[in-house]
Simulated assay, not measured.
Amino acid sequence: MNAFLAELGKRAADRWLTLLVLPGALFLAVSGAGVLVLGHERWYDVRALAGAVNSIGGASRGTGQVLMFVVFLGLGASAVGLAARAVGGGVERLWLTTNRGRASRWLTARRRTRWSIADQRYRTALLRCCGEGSHEASAYKLDALLIARDRICPVSPERPTWMGDRVRATSERVHLMYDVDFASLWPRLWLCMPDATRAELIAARTALSAEARLFGWGLFYLPLAGWWWPSGVISMVTCLVAWSRGRTAAATLAELAESTVDLYGRDLAEQLGVNCSGTFSRDIGLEVTRILRKDG
C-alpha cells in the first residue's frame, strides 16, 4: 500500500508539474520578458533580456531571496495554469456545444445548408451514375462528392461546430445502422469492452481535452500582444495548431466509439441474453434497446 501511494503521489506530482507549473512558468517568463523588458521596439533585444535575467539571480541577492522568488514563481505558475485549465474547459464545451442562442442556431443553419447542397450533388451524381452504368470515372467522382459532403458532417448537421457534430454523428450513425439507442448502450458497452479498448478511448478523450487546454493557453498570450507584438503571433499559431489537432482528436474519438459498437455490440447482446447467432443486426439492436431502456 505504501508503494502504491508513493507511486500515486509521484504521478500526481508529475501531472501537476507538466500540466500547470511548466506552461504557467513559460507564460510568466514570456509576459515578463515581453512586457517589462522588450516591448514593441526592442522585441528582439536578447542582450537586454540577458541583463534582466542576470539581475534577478545576481550575486548581490541572498539565497533566501532567490528561494522566495522561486516559490512565488511556482505559485504564480500554478495559478495561471489553473486559470488556463478552466479556460480550456470552456473552449472544449464551446467546441462540442449544442444549439444555444441565436448565433449557434445561425451557424447550425448555415452548416446544414452547405451539407444539403453537398448531399444533393452527391445523390444527383449517384442517380446519373446508376443510369449510365458503373465505370471508373463515375466512381471517382462519386467518391469525391461523398468526401466533400462528409467533410462537412457524416450526417445532417445539428450543432454549430464541426467537432460537436462529428461526435454527435456517432450516435446517429449507430442508430441508423443497428436501430439501437447509443446513450443507453454506451455505459453497458463500456463494462464489456477489453481494457486495451478502454485505454484507446480514454487516450482519445484525453487528447481532445489537451488540445482544448492548448487553445486556452493560446488565448492567454493574445492580450500580451498589446505590449509585445510577437505574443500575438504565438497566440495565433498556438490556437491554429490546437484547433487543427482538436479536430483530429474529435474525429479519432468518434471513429473509435463507433468501431467499439461494431466490434463489441454482439458481445453485449449475448450477455443480455439476446440470441445473436449471426451478426449484430437491426433486429438485435432493437431488442437490446428495449432491454436497456426498460421499455417493457
Rank of each mutant, 00 (worst) to 15 (best):
G9A: 07
G9V: 01
R11C: 09
R11A: 13
V37W: 08
E41G: 15
R42F: 14
W43L: 07
Y44F: 11
R47L: 08
V53R: 03
G57S: 08
G62M: 06
Q65P: 00
Q65K: 10
L67E: 13
V71L: 15
G74H: 03
G76I: 12
R85I: 01
G89N: 13
G90I: 04
L94M: 13
T97W: 09
A103P: 06
R114M: 10
S116Q: 14
I117S: 12
A118E: 05
D119T: 02
T124Q: 10
L126F: 09
L127F: 09
C130V: 11
E132V: 12
A139Y: 05
Y140T: 08
R149C: 12
P154M: 04
S156A: 13
R159P: 04
G164S: 02
R168P: 02
V174N: 00
H175W: 02
D181T: 05
W186V: 08
P187H: 08
P187W: 04
L191V: 09
A196H: 12
A196Q: 09
R205D: 15
E211L: 02
L214P: 00
G216E: 01
Y221V: 04
L222Y: 03
W228L: 03
P230M: 05
S231L: 06
V233S: 13
V233Y: 10
I234T: 13
M236G: 04
V237A: 03
A242G: 01
T252I: 03
E255F: 11
E255S: 07
L256R: 07
Q271F: 05
V274T: 04
S277G: 15
R282W: 07
